[in-house]
Simulated assay, not measured.
Amino acid sequence: MSGLHRHTGSTCLLDEACADHACLHPPLERGGLIQRLDPRSRVLAAVSFALLVVALSHLPTLAVAVALAVVAAVLARLEVGTTLRRLLALEGFMVLALMMLPFTVPGDPLFTVGGLEASRQGAVQALVILLKANAVVLMVLALVGSMDTVTLGQALRRLGAPEKLVQLYLFTVRYLDVLHREYRRLRTAMRARAFTMRSNRHTWTSIGYLFGMLMVRSVERSERIVAAMRCRGFDGTFPSLETPTRFQRPDGLFALASLAGMVMLMTIESL
Rank of each mutant, 00 (worst) to 15 (best):
M1L: 10
G3L: 09
G3M: 10
T8I: 09
G9D: 10
S10P: 06
L14M: 14
A19S: 10
D20L: 13
C23T: 11
L24V: 05
P26N: 01
P27F: 11
G31I: 09
G32I: 14
D38A: 10
R40M: 11
S41L: 11
S41N: 13
V43Y: 15
A45L: 13
A46P: 01
V47Y: 05
V47P: 03
S48T: 09
L51V: 11
V53G: 07
V53M: 05
A55L: 08
L56N: 03
S57E: 15
T61R: 08
A65G: 07
A65K: 01
V66N: 11
A67P: 02
A67T: 05
V70K: 00
A73R: 03
V74Q: 10
V74D: 06
L78E: 10
G81A: 12
G81W: 03
T82Q: 14
T83C: 13
L84T: 13
R85Q: 12
A89F: 01
A89Y: 01
L90R: 15
L90N: 11
E91L: 14
E91F: 15
G92R: 01
F93N: 08
F103T: 11
D108H: 11
T112N: 11
G115K: 01
G115Q: 05
G115Y: 00
L116Y: 10
E117R: 02
E117L: 08
G122P: 07
A123F: 04
V124G: 07
Q125L: 15
Q125V: 06
Q125C: 13
A126Y: 09
L127T: 09
K132V: 05
N134E: 12
V136Q: 05
V136D: 04
V136A: 04
V137T: 11
V137K: 10
L138S: 00
V140S: 02
L141W: 07
A142C: 07
L143K: 02
L143P: 00
G145A: 02
S146F: 06
M147P: 12
A155T: 01
R158M: 05
R158Q: 14
A161Y: 00
P162M: 15
P162V: 05
K164T: 03
L165E: 06
V166T: 01
L168K: 03
Y175F: 00
Y175R: 02
L176F: 00
V178T: 02
Y183I: 00
R184Y: 13
T188W: 08
A189E: 12
M190E: 04
M190T: 02
M190P: 01
R193M: 04
T196L: 12
N200H: 06
W204L: 15
S206E: 07
G208E: 14
L210P: 10
G212C: 09
G212R: 08
M215S: 09
S222Q: 11
E223D: 10
V226T: 13
V226C: 01
R230H: 08
R230F: 04
C231R: 12
F234D: 07
P239G: 10
P239M: 14
S240W: 01
L241N: 02
P244E: 10
T245E: 13
F247H: 11
Q248K: 07
G252R: 15
L253I: 14
F254M: 04
A255Y: 04
S258P: 04
A260T: 14
M262C: 12
M264R: 12
L265F: 12
I268S: 09
E269T: 06
